[in-house]
Design a protein around this nucleic acid. Structure first.
Lengths: 158, 158
DNA sequence: GTCCGTGCAAATCATTTGCACTTCT
DNA sequence: AGAAGTGCAAATGATTTGCACGGAC
């Protein structure tokens, strides 16, 4: 999961700082405590250009600065609060990303190297409508596309 | 990863027995061995009207008739062969279902009671096209919708 | 001062792997 | 015969929980 891309922010609007502030505000609204470990996590999440695993967040935040268990617990709380979005994926792993309202999207994940890229948009409305028609409510969805990225598809790579 | 469409009759009127036979044939084509444990699993899968967990398959096939490990290993092999479709879901669990060519679909899963219902169709073509445009190949996708089913939404149920 | 959040250790749980043995083909 | 499949035990790896302490409000 290492490649030295350095892209500040891709497209629209809010920089990392703003996103942290927004998240902090939402935590306060929810009567959640804003602690040093959580701020570290938020900074990491705000700077990330794609979803991260708990382990990656732990490491990026300085693994000696906060416990992995705390990362899991805080991510759980933030997920419940709608501050981060959890992306459950194959083999029981999950990735987490700060929620950007109005920027719902999904990803392609390379089956071999784990590289992740964002895909624009989401076509689930029809399926969600069908689910709603069956009487289901409070809908959310999980969706990831898996494939082999260009680099890994290179014959020389085999 | 190719699916050879051959009999149209499989599509519309296939009973459990037919589905087992189709799966057996595909296993033979792939030089996979058709063994007693695998036949048991196929019968269970063919009779199911929704995806099952490895544990459920193990139990339904007679937990003393085959080992849980065998269930996992065979499901893995059948998944690779495109005979069963694996539905990875939250918390590291997976469900498996016999593949019905031409009947690709997804499900709604009740977050509270685990009830599963089939939803018609799949709208991922646009996203897969986007992934392909980014150079990714050999695409597959994971997608499940989560919600609260009518029964669990009942106030009296709380 | 209260609670929520944290750290550390130990526990879970679904799934995987090593190895020797059995059984298809 | 020989490879593929199986069973049992033990390992893995991500995530979770128990409990006592510490810090945010």
């Amino acid at each position: 999961m290492s490649q030295g891309h350095r892209h500040e922010e891709d497209c629209c609007g809010a920089g990392p700082g703003d996103r942290v502030q927004t998240a902090v505000q939402r935590m306060k609204d929810r009567a959640m405590r804003v602690t040093a470990p959580r701020l570290r996590m938020l900074k990491v999440l705000a700077a990330a250009r794609h979803p991260l695993s708990a382990e990656q967040i732990h490491e990026a935040a300085g693994d000696d600065q906060l416990d992995l268990v705390t990362v899991y617990r805080s991510l759980g709380a933030m997920d419940d609060a709608g501050i981060v979005q959890r992306h459950p994926l194959e083999r029981g792993r999950s990735l987490y990303a700060l929620v950007s309202p109005g920027h719902h999207h999904h990803h392609v994940i390379c089956r071999r190297c784990g590289r992740i890229e964002r895909l624009p948009g989401c076509d689930t409305s029809r399926l969600e409508a069908a689910a709603r028609a069956k009487g289901f409510g409070d809908l959310t969805h999980v969706m990831e596309i898996y494939g082999v990225c260009p680099a890994c598809a290179q014959p020389s790579h085999a």
